[in-house]
Simulated assay, not measured.
Amino acid sequence: MDILSIIGVILGFAALIGGNFIEGGTLQSLINGPAALIVIGGTVGAALLQTPWSQLRRALEVFPWVFKPPANMFQDGLSRVVRWSVAARKEGLLGLETIAETEKDPFARKGLQLLVDGSEPESIRRVMETELVIQEQRDLDSVRFYESMGGYSPTIGIIGAVMGLIHVMRNLADPNELGPGIAIAFVATIYGVAFANLFLLPVANKLKMCVHEQAQYREMIIEGIIAIAEGENPRSIEMKLNGYLP
Rank of each mutant, 00 (worst) to 15 (best):
E122V: 03
V168M: 11
A100S: 11
N171L: 15
W65R: 05
D76T: 13
G41I: 00
Q50N: 01
I134A: 15
D141T: 01
L115V: 08
M149D: 02
L93A: 00
F145G: 08
E129D: 08
V127H: 04
D117H: 02
S85N: 14
T102H: 11
P69I: 10
V127A: 03
G33S: 14
I99L: 09
E91K: 13
K68V: 12
P175Y: 13
V133T: 14
G150N: 07
Q137E: 11
Q135G: 06
R80D: 13
M149G: 09
I38E: 08
Q55W: 10
V143P: 00
V162H: 10
A173L: 13
N72P: 08
G157K: 11
I40S: 11
M128G: 05
E103M: 06
V127M: 05
E122F: 05
Q135D: 08
I156L: 15
R58V: 10
G111K: 00
S79C: 02
Q55E: 15
D117C: 02
Y146C: 05
S123K: 13
I158V: 07
F74K: 09
S79E: 13
V82M: 11
S119G: 03
L114S: 04
E120V: 05
G164C: 05
P34S: 14
L115H: 04
E101L: 08
Q135R: 15
A87Q: 13
G151C: 10
E136G: 11
S123Q: 14
V81T: 06
V127R: 00
R125M: 01
I99M: 15
L37R: 09
P69A: 03
E122D: 06
G45Y: 04
E91A: 14
G41Q: 04
E131K: 06
S119D: 02
R83S: 13
V81C: 08
R144F: 12
P106S: 02
L56R: 07
E91H: 13
Q50P: 00
E120S: 12
T98C: 00
D76I: 11
L165C: 06
K90E: 14
S148G: 08
R109M: 08
T130L: 09
A35K: 13
R58D: 06
E122Y: 00
R83Q: 10
R57C: 07
G151V: 09
L37D: 09
L140N: 14
N72F: 03
Q50G: 06
L94K: 02
D139Q: 14
V127E: 07
R80C: 07
R80E: 12
K68T: 14
K104P: 14
L93S: 06
G45L: 02
R57V: 12
M163Q: 13
G45H: 02
L49D: 01
G160I: 03
G33A: 15
F63W: 09
A36T: 13
L56Y: 11
V168S: 10
V168A: 12
M169Q: 10
A87M: 07
W84G: 00
F107N: 11
H167S: 13
S123I: 10
L48G: 00
P69T: 07
R83H: 09
S54E: 10
D174V: 15
Q113V: 01
G150S: 03
N171Q: 15
P52M: 04
F107K: 05
T43R: 11
V133F: 10
E101P: 01
S148I: 04
N72D: 15
T155K: 03
W84F: 12
D174M: 15
L60S: 04
D76R: 12
M163V: 15
I99W: 06
Y152C: 03
G41K: 00
Q113I: 05
W84D: 10
G160C: 11
F67S: 12
